[in-house]
Amino acid sequence: MSTVTVELAAARVVEATKVYGRGDTEVRALDTVDASFERGRFTAIMGPSGSGKSTLLHCLAGLDHLTSGHVFLGELELSGLSEKQLTKVRRDRLGFVFQSYNLVPTLTAAENITLPADLGGRPIDQAWVDRVIDVVDLRNRLTHRPSELSGGQQQRVAVARALANQPDIVFADEPTGNLDSKSSGDILRFMRKAVDEFNQTIVMVSHDPVAAAYADRVVFLADGRIVDEIQSPTRESVLEHMARLGD
């Protein structure tokens, strides 16, 4: 892997501003944020409620639009894309893991995993999908419907779906928010493994220092601005920075 590609960001935002409401009720969820997320790394975005961390993720993922500023996915600027082009980008180049309601309830686990490829009408790289399924340990749950799976299993299906597509980047929005600590650990280890073994890029929003400790880098947001950042975080270092933010 050449240094050039490593240095090129998988995604970045330039002067990203997002404003909700107007006049008295105006809220600046993002206030001229500049940030970049390197390829092959696992980045956590942290911050208190209302800091704008989810908004940043949604705008990065093309799910929401900036009020002003730019979003780049690799060299592609999302801000100017039509809904149709955005749909194609999400389907072919991005993966998602949400906090809850990640799966189409009427489809089986296996069908949910291959959903983006099926929607795109693309052939499925079965060997790759098999490998992902083994990594998340879902081999014997493939024919189950979401309602027949535990919360942890559902999130593993969601992670598998996000990875099955071999996306440029996976966005995870509080992926362990609804899980017990054991299931959380499983999910985070899988994500870590995806970065280490598959050279996957992951951006995760979380408020949990334990989760953030799995990342290569943590970015702290408060009031719509990036206020801090640590490399190779540990639970302790994250807690320490959070405590400082609280002051």
Binding site: L63, E83, K84, T87, K88, R90, R91, D92, F96, F98, Y101, N102, L103, V104, P105, T106, L115, P116, L119, G120, R161
Partner: peptide
């Protein structure tokens, strides 16, 4: 809505 939006998020086109 959430199910349809999820499909949209993972790449279903409006036409689909």
């Amino acid at each position: 809505t959430r199910e349809l939006a999820l499909m949209r998020a993972v790449g279903a086109s409006p036409g689909q």
